[in-house]
Design a protein around this nucleic acid. Structure first.
Lengths: 219, 219, 219, 219
DNA sequence: AATGAATGAGTGTTCATTCAT
DNA sequence: CATGAATGAACACTCATTCAT
């Protein structure tokens, strides 16, 4: 089994105090709402009720704040993935649980995954992409292990292209999330609760069903 | 059959001269590369080699420039969808062609769909969302028509949630696109040509297969 | 005779409007008083009663403002030097006139020479030094021509190190200028007029006498 | 003979510990390289590997740090001047030795004299100028004593303006120093050693010769 | 119809200094 | 005695937009 040491090391290095965490939480919300470029450190400092200089002081720069945010928010993921991989479940159940885990995490850590998977691809910022790529690789490898297991058991097709599964899982979810106002109206999800329920029930099931069909159905 | 008049009217209203089109083309590229907030009208005016005031002059504001861009770039889509709907094809073939059409269009009009489907959801900008929602509705209805056709012919499952198909089609593609650097390395797509070929062959097939499986496979 | 084309070209390129000149004048005064780093563009904009953004707008940056200032203020010097070189004067008279010319110019263009000869040496700023070095070379060559003339006529010693003459001329003047408060008190120069008179009479004579003695006196 | 008590008192007041001296040394270097305004206390604290608050803590403020630095670095000068004045030398030899002493000191205490004689004149900072003026007066009186001695012996002209000698001595040296890059290239002084040798030999001789000529040569 | 000039508000960052511990 | 944490003010610069011509 591959190890998650790189991310562990990164995560352990961060020793965040209360105010730093508060800043990160606010930053996550605002980045989620308005994007990275659309959010100013003034917005963050105002919302977090801290001095504007604190952000540079604590994190060095706006971009490093984002990097810290991502490391902070993804540091638990590896643990959850490790646990899942060791669980004794049928392949389909495992995949379903993986999808559930992803959606849950992303739904909780509101905006961070959006930024992680989309905004960072922009040519504008020369982020230290390796940190982010590492997270993506960890995700991919976990998925690979599960699918290989399923293939070994003869449950899953053998000709599936694993790296394209993640785009389908995450892409479907993100696309739904990003078009929240559109779907809220279309599906008549008037309250935040209804909307979240829809994600956790209908959307999750849709994605699980999609991936299951893809992995099992032979043309 | 529903009509596309709303978009037609919008599109006809725009009578764009050469310079305006040039600006829109540049804007599309830059928005795609750096996002809406990450692109300044200075960047656009410089790249398009026009006076900076021209953008406000021609389009009114940066946000209205984006609106014009979207209307301009999506104005052909309805025609293509109309033609496709009228074609005499098997349901699966029709869906496959729809997917192909989407990917082709998005791949050509590089950044516009990214913005259309993602960046606009941001709370920061109060775009006149109706324009964009209209396009999404057009897309959805086209899909609905095709799927209903397939269901009527007994080819497709009846319990599928149509509004969630689009997120899967587009989401998968976008996620792949947004993580271009990651997949370039992972899949060893060294040149732009190899990358585009991969999209038009492997990725398109993956999405087609996914949707087909979802629509046909009964649990 | 060497040519001054490089500086001429530079100078001709600048087509400054009234406001730009006003900014340059203010900048010169403030740079002279408080140094380059000690002067903020806010100070300049306030004093010049123009919007702060104008400085970046007109000149690009604070450093480019300085470069423009130097080119602007030194653009007349070459003409004066050319004319002086062509005058039919005894060597000593020519040197004396050169010294007079320098002191006059520097005294009029108050701070620019201070910056040109001192502040720019700092390691902090990576100015495009070539522009400034060119001016220094022009100065040096003019002096060389005059001294060579005097040596040819047997008036001046032959073993003088020409490049060290400029430091003595300018250095003496600058040192006096920089210690203005000290000398004002010491020499009882209570008014600006008295101070300027002292420079144009006593100090100029002192420098002329010094250089003459150096060039003529044999140990 | 006048006394140096004022400076002595000032110097005795400072009881500097190791860290304070270390800070002063670093400050001198950085002030020399980047000027007073161009150097931040962050730069100093980083370079000296001490906490940033130490500077305010030890010296009170950035300006008081400079004052301490100047007092610290000039405290030895009066001793050397006293000794020189008491030496039994011919007037010319004494002047030459004075010049040598100046150049040596300034060359060793790299940036402090530059700041002392130039940057402090700035209107920006309201330094407690008296401290610095005192040093200048000490210098001037020493020079006066030597020149008066020479005049009494009939070696030096009687109509020389003593306060203008210092500007010539120091100004020449400073101007050379400040234009280091220019002269390095011009005189082909490729290494630091060559450059320093040039100062200690050629430049020193030039200044000595200049002052001697000025003091002796009758028009 | 088209644009150079101009602007007020805003950007991320760094400044010297203070203060509780 | 010494320092990490914290801050308000200032920094140079860029923003989208307006307006007179």
């Amino acid at each position: 089994m591959f190890n998650f040491d790189v991310l562990k090391q990164k995560a352990l290095k961060i020793d965040l105090n209360e105010k730093q965490i508060q800043i990160l939480e606010v930053a996550e919300t605002l980045f989620a709402e308005k994007g990275f470029d659309g959010t100013s450190i003034r917005d963050i400092s105002k919302e977090a009720k801290i001095n504007i200089a604190m952000i540079s002081y604590y994190f060095g720069s706006k971009e490093k704040l984002l990097e810290s945010l991502i490391i902070f928010k993804t540091s638990g993921l590896k643990m959850q993935l490790e646990l899942l991989l060791e669980e004794n479940l049928e392949p389909v159940a495992k995949i379903n649980k993986l999808i559930e885990l992803y959606i849950n995490r992303i739904n909780c850590n509101r905006g961070i995954y959006r930024i992680l998977h989309f905004e960072l691809s922009s040519k504008k910022h020369e982020f230290h992409l390796e940190t982010f790529a590492e997270i993506k690789r960890v995700n991919l490898r976990s998925l690979e292990l599960i699918i290989n297991e399923g293939q070994a058991k003869g449950v899953f097709r053998k000709d599936v292209i694993v790296p394209l599964i993640t785009p389908t899982i995450l892409g479907t979810f993100f696309h739904f999330q990003m078009n929240k106002p559109f779907f809220e109206e279309l599906l008549d999800l008037k309250t935040e609760e209804l909307y979240n329920n829809y994600i956790q029930n209908d959307l999750t099931k849709h994605i699980q069903q999609t991936i299951k069909a893809l992995l099992i159905y032979e043309n």
